[in-house]
Amino acid sequence: MPPVNSVTVSESNGLTFLDVSNTFASARISLFGGHILSYIPKKDGKERLWVSPHAYLNGERPIRGGIPVCWPWFSDDHGREKGALPAHGFLRTQVWKLIHSEEADNGTTITLSPNFTRAEGFEYDCNVNMIITVGDTMDISLNTENTGVTPFDFNCALHTYFHVDHIQHTQINGIEGQYQDKLDNWSLKPTPSPYTITGETDRIHVAPIKTAEIEVEGSPFTEVLSDGNDSLVVWNPWLGAASISDMDPFGYKHMLCVETSITQGKTVAPGASHTLRQTIVPK
């Protein structure tokens, strides 16, 4: 079935892209990784996502930036030696399929599904799909359904790289409580207030935070709504960007990851399902 009129299919360097343009916004999605690369609301014409200028857009490696899909584990939390299995799981390096598209009063909705969900490190029967609605907001729902006869546990994340004009003029509002500091042996620390980024940051806020706001130059820029999550991850590599091969050494100045996540494990019973949802709200 061909996509609806607001969706154009194109190919480049062996990858297939879906370009969405409607009265509300434009967006770009790579079928490699089911990876959202761009979201530009037409009310202000400002990009909300950041993609590295050095990102691999040829299928050789996961794409750096946009919204990578982490599933069925987060980072290297797969129960094996670090590096034994792909970081963040195996969905972000396979080609997804366009299952359905439709146009409605609130925008364009696209449903994608990966080619397989069973691989080394996760050998359970399940279905996964991602439903993306491009409108005045961008809504992403990652659905995991247990189609087998035994329960399973999994972690996942929508690892969103948000664009900011300058990280040193950026503040995060709405996050409270404690976080696990991955840079300091997972120690628990209180969330800073005001929440600004002043150096390398890799934090798992261990609470089901539903609303966070990215403020740029003193004004709200993007609101991040989360549902079905047990945590929110905040990441910026700072000067460590220089050691990341597909990232500009100064790219950290223009990005901030705020990731709707399950990092503490979610059990899905046979016949049951779980939805992790993130909504990007331009302000």
Rank of each mutant, 00 (worst) to 15 (best):
P2H: 11
V4I: 12
V7R: 06
E11L: 01
S12Y: 01
T16C: 11
L18E: 10
F24K: 10
L31A: 11
F32L: 10
F32W: 15
S38T: 06
K43G: 03
R48F: 05
H54C: 09
H54M: 14
E60Y: 03
G65L: 05
G65Y: 03
G66C: 04
V69W: 02
V69N: 05
W71R: 02
K82I: 12
G83H: 09
A84E: 14
P86T: 11
P86M: 13
P86Y: 06
F90V: 04
R92L: 06
E103L: 02
A104Q: 13
D105A: 15
N106Y: 10
G107I: 09
G107V: 07
G107D: 08
T109Q: 13
T109F: 06
T111H: 02
L112P: 11
G121A: 05
F122Q: 01
F122G: 01
E123M: 08
D125F: 00
D125W: 00
C126Q: 05
V128F: 01
I131M: 13
T133Y: 04
D136F: 01
D139Q: 13
D139I: 07
S141G: 15
S141N: 14
N146H: 04
T147W: 03
T150H: 13
P151D: 05
F152E: 02
F154D: 06
F154V: 04
N155D: 10
A157T: 01
I167G: 04
H169K: 15
H169L: 08
I175E: 03
Y179N: 10
D184W: 06
S187I: 13
P190N: 13
P190G: 08
P190I: 09
T191K: 03
P192K: 07
P194K: 11
T196Y: 03
G199L: 02
G199D: 15
D202P: 09
D202I: 07
I204W: 08
V206L: 13
P208Q: 04
I209H: 15
I209T: 14
E213N: 12
E213W: 08
E215A: 11
P220V: 09
P220L: 12
T222H: 01
T222F: 05
T222P: 04
G228Y: 09
V233A: 05
P237M: 10
W238P: 06
L239T: 14
G240T: 06
G240H: 10
S243W: 00
I244V: 14
Y252G: 10
L256D: 09
C257G: 08
E259A: 10
Q264G: 12
K266L: 08
S273C: 02
H274I: 02
Q278N: 09
T279Y: 00
